[in-house]
Design a protein around this nucleic acid. Structure first.
Lengths: 141, 141
DNA sequence: GAGCAATAATTGATGACGTCAATAGTTGTT
DNA sequence: AACAACTATTGACGTCATCAATTATTGCTC
């Protein structure tokens, strides 16, 4: 019989869970959850995104995005702006407050990752990251 | 600003989600979910486990284990047996039906993993698996 | 050995979350 | 001008995690 962790896919699932829990526990202090953080990080890379882009790229339901952006707006981390060419859409952008938050928590995020990857040396971490990125780019984005 | 997937921990979280979704969709046909599958696979490696062990090793709340084992018992995949040395405990064991189910679905699980790891060749998959296992063994088990 | 803290399984309550259907407003097409 | 497609939003529903409380049993300690 194959072992509990003989399957890479299942192993990924388990480690993803653990990683998510670690991130969540460090975000708890800020009153945010992982999903908010995902939105913030996406906005930081894109300089403004339609909510439907956020939904598609992050894999969350459009109705979930509504609440997440609501929360971020209340905290002053993001705002909705009207899209110039389509009045149905709203463009979500990071505010200066949101950018500052990301700067402040960046180090904490790295600490979480360090804790997780503790058994690996620098070269191995590099290898792992490259492999995961290859998988992620196929389908995810 | 660092990219969306610059952080290995966050990347692991995202891929873990995707992997979990794939597993879940293949398990749906059997009426089970990922958590049931996790219990079954654990039981297959351990030849009987206290519910307390399942909770600790799989990271699920003890009260969640109750429902999962209930479901597996209803399907005839596992049973609770009295623990000889401690009447508080119950030992959960895989039945022959559960073992057959694991055999039958083993191939489907591999197919899911293959789909996920599509961008990687055999050697790379080996490397990835070894690295993930090192991380998993530290804290998880 | 009597009393008391600790443990295993269980139940129940609560809140968060994903999923889905429905709606309002807007755009594009024909 | 009419209709299909799309964006954001709301609301409903079921699932799930989390936590406190309960029951039965064990082990510790005085």
């Amino acid at each position: 019989m194959r072992g509990l962790h003989a399957d890479t896919g299942y192993l990924l699932y388990r480690l993803g869970l653990r990683s998510g829990q670690l991130f969540n526990s460090f975000l708890l202090e800020s009153g945010l959850r992982l999903r908010h953080y995902a939105v913030l990080r996406f906005l930081a890379t894109s300089e403004g995104a339609l909510q439907r882009e956020l939904s598609a790229r992050l894999g969350y339901d459009p109705s979930a995005i509504v609440g997440l952006v609501d929360d971020l707006e209340k905290l002053g981390f993001a705002e909705r702006r009207p899209a110039p060419d389509d009045r149905r859409s709203r463009i979500v952008v990071l505010t200066e407050g949101g950018r500052a938050f990301l700067r402040d928590t960046d180090e904490a995020g790295l600490r979480v990752t360090n804790e997780l990857l503790d058994p690996l040396d620098a070269a191995e971490r590099e290898t792992l990251h490259a492999l995961l990125l290859r998988i992620a780019e196929d389908g995810l984005s």
